[in-house]
Computed example of a mutant assay.
Amino acid sequence: MRILVVGAGAIGGYFGGRMLQAGCDVTFLVRPRRAAELAATGLVIKSPLGDVTLKNPATVQADQLGEKFDVVLLSCKAFDLDDAIKSFAPAVGPQTAVIPLLNGMRHLDALDAKFGPERILGGLCAIAVTLNETREIVHLQPMQSLTFGERDGKQSDRVRAIADTMGKGNFGSKASNEIIHEMWEKWVFLASLAASTCLMRASVGHIVASPGGRDFILGMLDECSAVASAEGHAPGTPFLKRISGMLTAEGSPMTASMFRDIKAGAPVEADHVIGDLTARGEAAKVPVPKLRTAYTHLKAYEKTRDEVAR
């Protein structure tokens, strides 16, 4: 099975690297700068689960891409999706399966429109990973998982084949019969965390320690859960219990990557993660005042950032 990983950043580099380490046929679609880095130093992963340096990983650049791949693993940010689609489109053939690991749901519409829904699986990952100043992939916590599946819930031959291949990477890969529901649950968690920590410019622990902070976070979770329920994907009780505990843990340093992006002055996925959920809630007549405030806050940040960049 030939796998094309779009990019060799934190997420794509980690999962692609673990599969490459296990002997899988993996190629990274990268820009010239990243190709030069990988040729010089290899793909370096620093992890509590084991470090590895993979010398001379196979890479290809967009203008060189002509072969078809069995699987395309896509882990870009939502604001880079259009460019990513253009870059890997030549690799998608009639039998190719695309596994997007983006948050939310809007990306599925764009991928369906370009390649047809029959080629697009559902997917999500759970991992804390980043690139350090020397462009090494740093795995911050032992947590790691990658879940994928047919969006209609069926167990297909291609999903079983992908599961067999990804299982060699030993990163908690799982084929799911409820991938869309699981994507919704992750979206509920991520949106609750991102909206709260971005609005308050603080970690979960600092918010919870402030007057009204615990009620605020739980209220945000209630709004996000209500939108998911209106869309036919009510979060399960075990999920809500676990997530409520994480979002109200005293002393927790947890923040959303979106909050860290704001602190760094970087682009954010305001429309894809918070804006789309807000719009769906309002369309379903679900009250989402906290989400709406968070979205307005993020759009104001984007405008301020754009002015500074000019």
Rank of each mutant, 00 (worst) to 15 (best):
T134V: 14
E250R: 00
L247M: 11
E269G: 06
K299N: 14
A110W: 03
Q155F: 14
A91Q: 01
A91I: 04
Y301C: 12
L199E: 14
G153R: 09
H297M: 11
G219W: 02
C24Q: 15
L140Y: 04
I127E: 05
R33A: 10
G172A: 09
S225F: 01
L102Y: 06
A195K: 02
A163I: 09
S192V: 08
K86I: 06
S176E: 10
A300L: 14
A40I: 08
A294G: 04
V204I: 15
I85E: 00
A294R: 07
V288F: 01
V52M: 02
R106H: 02
V52K: 01
I120C: 08
F28V: 02
G232V: 06
R260F: 11
G213H: 05
T41S: 14
L108W: 12
E150C: 05
S192Y: 05
L124H: 09
E182Q: 15
G167Q: 11
Q141D: 11
G42S: 02
D271Q: 12
E269N: 06
D164L: 15
V44Y: 04
A35Y: 03
S87F: 03
G169A: 05
S75R: 06
S145G: 09
A126L: 14
A89G: 04
E307F: 00
V129Y: 03
G236K: 10
A39I: 03
V188R: 09
F148I: 03
P117Q: 04
R2H: 05
R33Q: 07
